[in-house]
Amino acid sequence: MIDPALFEQLKSKIEEDASVRKELDQILDDLNQHVSFTQGVLSRIHSTPRSKYAPLLGQVEGGIKNEIETIGRLSAFASQYPYYKYNHKWQRMVQDAISTVILCAWLGGLSSESTPGEVGRLLTLEDIGALFGVPVDLKDRDAFHITIEEYLLGLINVIDDLSRLAVNSVTLGDTAMAVQISAFIKDLHAGFQVLNLKNDILRKRVDSIKYAVKKVEDVVYDLSLRNLIPAPEAQ
């Protein structure tokens, strides 16, 4: 009925698949550790006044350096296998890594000679790819890359985080920050409206942006009511 060779062949293929997954899990464990640390450091922006960002961002950049190194390892290993066979394993983690990088750069970190660090810089998908040293939105060959969905989902995480920062920056007396965040989030919200979304995770997350917009608008409303908005940025 069944050729014994067939059994052996399938068995070894399944075993190979299992060992690939195991290896991936190990790399992803490392990545998880670095991403969690970086996220943890970043969470301190909510209690740090803008004048003290520099040392904090320096620490974040240290975490990002580890992320870059681990994603490099992931890329090298995963590129040996069909990308979409395993990409569900790292999607979440890569998204989170992207979030840390976007947020760090937006706060003025990750600067270079050509791009001075200033608050409000948005890294594009291409910037992210360049930073991590991996291709983005690959279509012509099968290798590790960062997908559009990962970038957009990572960006939405940053929006959530910034809406929180708007509240906390006001507490710290930095009302200009709240106003800047409001403008940024509104622009991104409008940007996301341009997308034609299907009924999937991306759509669900995009739908949540409006709550961040509302949260920040409420903050700005409170400020304007009390004439607390600094003059140049007013409305």
Binding site: L122, T124, L125, D137, I148, E149, Y151, L152, D187, L188, A190, G191, F192, Q193, V194, L195, N196, L197
Partner: peptide, 20 residues
Amino acid sequence: KAVARNAYTPMFETLRDELD
């Protein structure tokens, strides 16, 4: 809304075409 463009609109338009 269609008229309201901002600095990020072109980026989102490119991504939209890819996603489509």
